[in-house]
Simulated scan of single mutants.
Amino acid sequence: MPNYKKEPDFPRVQGGGSLIIAWQVKNKQVMVVGGGEVAAGRILHLLNADADVTVVCPSSGLNPEVRHRVAQKQVTHVDRVFQPSDLDAVPSDAAAAPTPPAMVLVAIDDPPASTQIWKLCKERRIPANIADVPSECDFYFGSVHRDGALQIMVSTNGKGPRLAASIRKWIANALPRGGVVGNAIERIGVLRQKLRDVAPAPEDGPKRMRWMTKVSDAYSWDQMARLTDEDLDNLLKFYEANDVPALYLLKAMRGGRAPEDVDLFDGSFGFSVGV
């Protein structure tokens, strides 16, 4: 009888997508060319990511939102049209020391000028995004839902931005309201940092990951969001045993009580009256 070997059940490759990543631009110099509505959206994304933003655009081209960012000194404004030398170093009125931009975002109503900036960025190996021209983009902006530390991006790879926005709204409406998910993620983030202080060695990594998985599966989002700093410290007492306590036990430990000192009625004993 033939001995057929079963093929491994690996995920199927689906070409044509983008590599979805969380690009860390904190304290990095990012240049936005343009000052209209699209540029305003790009600037907000960058500021939310703690980037150092330089806007290159004549004052006459700034819309009210970008003008507000400039007035509040949230961005550095270069009041003129783009010049090729801008790619050699962020203009000298930037707060940080002049350096080449880490990325360039172009949002101007001038296709030939946009293409020229794209080509200049390619020569200098600077990642760039030319608004509404997918073929001249190293990366795309998706439709983003934000709730504290939670960020969900929906991308159509530049093919249907309006559809991406609709899908993002549908996902957001399916999530709990009132910042519950974002708060839960913040608390879990604090716990992870505390755990690294307790078990800092690289060889502790697999155990940390397994225990954090158990914690994440043990409590609901709402329960996680309500964990106090004391709860997190008490929770860490169960790490060595690779255990996760029931929520009622964790709450009973508040006020400095040790797990062995907690005496809770759990319904195991009692009586009933029959008729």
Score class of each variant (00 low, 15 high):
Thr228Ser: 15
Lys251Gly: 01
Lys207Thr: 10
Phe141Met: 09
Cys137Asn: 04
Glu7Ser: 15
Glu136Asn: 11
Arg168Cys: 07
Leu247Met: 14
His45Cys: 15
Ala113His: 01
Ser59Pro: 01
Thr228Arg: 07
Ala246Gly: 13
Arg254Gly: 07
Tyr219Leu: 04
Trp211Cys: 00
Lys159Asn: 12
Val38Gly: 01
Asp229Met: 09
Trp118Asn: 06
Gly179Ile: 10
Asp52Tyr: 11
Arg192Asn: 00
Leu195Arg: 05
His68Met: 09
Glu203Ser: 13
Ala22Gln: 13
Met31Trp: 07
Arg69Ser: 05
Ala131Asp: 03
Pro176Thr: 00
Phe141Val: 06
Pro161His: 06
Ile171Asp: 00
Trp118Pro: 00
Val32Trp: 08
Ala149Val: 09
Ser60Arg: 13
Val190Phe: 10
Leu62Trp: 02
Ile117Gln: 08
Ser216Asn: 10
Lys251Phe: 03
Gln74Thr: 05
Gly274Pro: 02
Val215Asp: 01
Asp229Val: 05
Pro245Arg: 03
Ser155Thr: 11
Pro202Asn: 14
Pro202Ser: 10
Gly142Val: 03
Trp170Pro: 00
Val273Pro: 03
Thr115Asn: 10
Val275Phe: 14
Gly160Asp: 15
His68Val: 01
Gly267Thr: 07
Gly34Thr: 06
Tyr4Arg: 15
Val32Glu: 07
His145Gly: 05
Trp23Phe: 11
Glu240Gly: 06
Gly205Tyr: 15
Pro64Gln: 08
Arg210Ala: 14
Ala149Glu: 15
Ala39Asp: 03
Pro101Trp: 00
Ser85Ala: 14
Lys6Gly: 02
Asn27Ser: 14
Asp86Leu: 08
Leu235Ser: 01
Ala40Gly: 10
Asp138Tyr: 09
Arg257Pro: 00
Leu227Ser: 07
Val133Gly: 02
Val154His: 01
Val215Gln: 04
Asp217Gly: 11
Val30Ala: 09
Asn157Cys: 14
Pro98Thr: 07
Gly256Cys: 06
Ala164Pro: 02
Lys6Phe: 08
Met224His: 15
Pro11Gly: 09
Tyr219Ser: 02
Gln193Tyr: 12
Val180Gln: 05
His145Pro: 09
Gly61Cys: 08
Ala95Arg: 12
Pro259Met: 03
Gln83Glu: 13
Leu46Val: 08
Thr99Lys: 14
Lys122Ser: 06
Val33Lys: 06
Pro176Cys: 03
Val38Tyr: 04
Ala258Pro: 02
Arg42Asn: 09
Ile171Ser: 01
Lys122Phe: 01
Val25Asp: 07
Ala174Leu: 13
Phe271Leu: 11
Ala199Cys: 03
Glu37Asp: 14
Asp261Tyr: 07
Ala201Pro: 00
Ser166Leu: 14
Ala149Trp: 11
Ile21Thr: 11
